[in-house]
Nucleic acid binder design. Structure first.
Length: 518
RNA sequence: GAGCCCGUAGCUCAGCGGUAGAGCAUUCGCCUUUUAAGCGAGGGGUCCUGGGUUCGAAUCCCAGCGGGCUCACCA
């Protein structure tokens, strides 16, 4: 208990959430681990929002472990018995998929032929993303739970409370929908489709429901995977069946959560502690969605940024609607480095830094030695994707020697910066043609360099450039440098040319200059 | 209709009881080479408005005004 008061002053939200759990669990007086749940609908490639939810839930788990060494378990629950409602645009075979509308995701084949089913493919993509971050989680498939009978006890409890549940749900629906609504969706024995049909007969003793098909009543059990629940009821049932203590959700699910809460009272009264987070917006402030293709995917972030930078972004202000687009990446990369530095130089306690949450409470030994935005500027200035050249230029700049971790991080950061440069900066750069006077001067430089038999030093290159600069712009050398940068790189500034030429070596320099005057 | 979030420098945002901040933009100064991958200095604010709590409010509470999103099919 003493420990708890120590952490109460920490404002970081994972600690606040963890304290909520501790307060509630003290009344529970049970020895089982605390159960965290995150939900996932495998109807397409995993959304960055799903990923954010797991990441953030894990941050609460870590905080909980720190405050009071409580065991916990993270359940990643996949709704893979849900029916396919829309054809996702990111799937390579949409026309093949379109024949499987209303089939459970787990009974649709995977046409990429890599996985046992369409759901299995999406589930595995999610797991891959999660594994990249070394999460400790237990993956649970809805299909498995229903079919193995693990949900049966709770399903019968739902059936017992059929009318109570209808009374909660019906007022929230429109008139047309009220006619057809049922908490149970039978799975058709003939076709295997998930049916949205009105339930005509409810037999609580036998655990059976019946619907009408061609004027005949079709009976089916609610157990053994013969039917599944509508999702709000499903959610409530799952809380009880899996003993969920904590679950996050996006703000779009707040009304659903409230409804599920009421339903849960009829089963075992198990309602998780809940935190709702704001949705991500795109650059223009609109909600990101897969169908629009706006915002960022996990893969896209990982193309230009480290996982630490992604974690940091997800950590910051989950209750605020944030814009998620490419510019966020360099910003987050630099912020990460700054937080790292503050802890390393003891300007900030690790426990009070986002670094604690990103790295599960431990301080990594080191990180990239140069700000990412600086690196992007450098790559832009050098106008190259050649990693050794960039790295060598970095080493000219850094005075202290780098340890092996810094070396590795630097190389990783350079690769990311190169990608960023290639995709966002390079297309906007426009090299200009030299004037006749400039062309003449550059030809002279080429001549001079060609006349050297051996490689020359950075200083000699620089002298050469100055020598001709004084001829073409005697009163303002700056103009000369700007012109050179514009002609060679398409920007107004750049690296010290002497050093760059030295790194490029004679042949490559000549090639670059000849290219420029073509 | 209900719920959630946001109003802080020109722009994007951080700060969330104790002197108003960052990045970009802007203005000025600095390249015959020892870091232009720029560097240095400055300007710029009714912290949306009005009340309240407090010794003290951008920060907490209440009311209002703007802007945005979400839900009310499905998940």
């Amino acid at each position: 208990m003493n420990n708890l008061t120590n952490y109460k002053n920490i404002k970081a939200w994972p600690f606040v959430e963890a304290i909520k759990i501790i307060k509630k669990s003290e009344n529970l007086n049970s020895n089982r681990p605390i159960h965290f749940e995150t939900g996932y609908g495998p109807s397409g490639i995993p959304h960055i929002g799903t990923f954010a939810e797991v990441l953030r839930t894990n941050m609460v788990r870590n905080a909980l472990r720190e405050i009071k060494n409580l065991n916990s378990k993270l359940i990643t629950f996949s709704d893979d018995l849900d029916a396919l409602k829309k054809i996702p645009e990111d799937y390579p075979y949409p026309e093949k998929l379109s024949k499987y509308l209303n089939y459970p995701l787990s009974s649709i084949p995977d046409f990429t032929e890599k996985y046992s089913s369409y759901a299995d493919r999406n589930n595995n993509l999610l797991k891959e993303f999660l594994n990249q971050f070394n999460f400790d989680y237990e993956f649970i498939s809805s299909t498995n739970m229903y079919k193995s009978g693990n949900f049966d006890k709770c399903l019968l409890k739902i059936l017992e409370n059929y009318e109570n549940i209808m009374n909660i749900i019906l007022p929230t629906l429109r008139k047309e929908r009220r006619e057809s609504y049922s908490p149970f969706l039978p799975i058709c024995k003939k076709t295997g489709k998930v049916l949205e049909v009105p339930i005509k007969i409810v037999n609580k003793e036998k655990g059976i429901i019946a619907y009408k098909d061609d004027n005949k009543f079709i009976e089916t059990t609610v157990t053994n995977g013969n039917s599944k629940l509508q999702w709000k009821v499903d959610w409530a049932m799952r809380w009880s069946a899996l003993k969920v203590d904590y679950e996050m959700n996006g703000k779009d699910l707040i009304p659903s959560f409230e409804l599920s809460k009421q339903i849960a009272k009829f089963i075992y009264n198990k309602v998780p502690i809940n935190m709702s987070y704001e949705l991500f917006l795109d650059q223009n402030g609109e909600k990101i969605s897969k169908s629009k293709g706006n915002g960022l995917s996990i893969d896209e972030w990982m193309t230009y940024g480290t996982k630490e930078s992604l974690s940091l972004f997800m950590y910051q202000n989950p209750r605020r609607a944030k814009r998620l687009y490419f510019d966020c990446i360099p910003k987050s990369m630099d912020e990460y480095k700054k937080y790292f530095k503050d802890v390393k130089e003891k300007k900030q306690e690790l426990l009070e830094s986002p670094i604690w949450h990103i790295h599960e409470g431990t301080m990594p030994e080191n990180t990239y030695p140069i700000e990412f935005s600086t690196l992007i500027n450098l790559v832009t200035a050098l106008n190259t994707s050649d990693i050794p050249t960039i790295k060598n230029f970095c080493l000219l700049y850094i005075k202290n020697s780098l340890d092996s971790i810094e070396q590795r991080c630097l190389e990783e950061a350079i690769k990311l910066a190169v990608k960023y440069f290639q995709n966002f900066i390079l297309p906007k750069l426009k090299k200009r043609k030299p004037s006749t006077k400039e062309k003449e001067i550059i030809e002279n430089i080429i001549n001079d360099i060609s006349n050297y038999k051996e490689e020359i030093s950075a200083e000699e290159y620089q002298n050469l450039i100055y020598k001709y600069g004084k001829i073409i712009h005697p009163e303002n050398l700056r103009e000369w440098f700007i012109s050179l940068y514009q002609i060679l790189f398409g920007s107004d500034n750049g690296p010290r040319l002497g050093s760059l030429f030295y790194l490029y070596k004679k042949n490559k320099v000549l090639q670059m200059l000849q290219e420029a005057i073509k």
